[in-house]
Amino acid sequence: MSKDSNGHIEIINKTENEIKEINKLNQVVLQTIKLTKKFGGLIAVNNFDLKVYKGEISSLIGPNGAGKTTVFNVVTGIYQADGGKVIFKGEDLAGKKPHQIIEKGIARTFQNIRLFNNMTCLENVMAGQHCRSREGVRSSIFRTSSQRKEESEIREIAKRRLQQVGLWKYRDELAKNIAYGNQRLLEIARALASNPDLLILDEPSSGLNDKESEDLVKFLKDLLKENLTILLIEHDMNVVMGISDWVTVMDEGKKIAEGKPEEVYHNPIVIEAYLGKEEEEES
């Protein structure tokens, strides 16, 4: 069997069952197969194949408008796919709603931060555990002892996550009142609060300064120790090169390359896609 540069077994000309077997060996956590999403006449994602391997940091890169965010939105159930499949831990996610998908173990952040602005930082992270808690209406109205116990557990976990991203001191601040860089971190903390298997981040370093980006890279690498897998969309090449185990490049809805960061970096097709776009923008 042929292997790619990262030691993943290649799947070329295999039947569906063989693919399943190989994915198990490769420990593929998330896979999209021929994923397609259209907006009217525009094909934003076109027969797109993506694989995310367990315990790695994978990056999805590509020029503006390539369809990266749309892939995330389909994976997390915000949009329904027009074709193809999303497989997470061997299960087809078709037709699942976003709140069910986070329960399965995929938590996300947004490109343009979406926090609960008029709630405190602590409440934001506590909300992240919604799918991991159970107490219902009756026990909440009467504040039963089991409800209070669960509530204090939620608070404990939220505290840990806030400390982890270094925002515990802002716990009682409203989310809208903290600095932009901290809002990005808060969104990650909220996603982590659901204790996900796969964390997907849409341009986590956008709007951060160099120092903050560096800290973010360190933070994400540290996260891998928690038995987590990370998929991110990233524009900042320094971040991508410094952090990724595996890079997938997309352009105009299609996958144009994948591999280790340095391979991708020197791939003429990738350079072409990026440079072409830059020249267009400059002229």
């Binding site: 997390t76 915000i78 709140h99 986070i102 996300r108 609960f116 602005n117 991991r132």
Partner: peptide, 12 residues
């Protein structure tokens, strides 16, 4: 505050 974020945070 934000319906889409709420749904993505696990709230039905």
């Amino acid at each position: 505050e934000d319906e889409i974020a709420a749904e993505s945070t696990g709230i039905d």
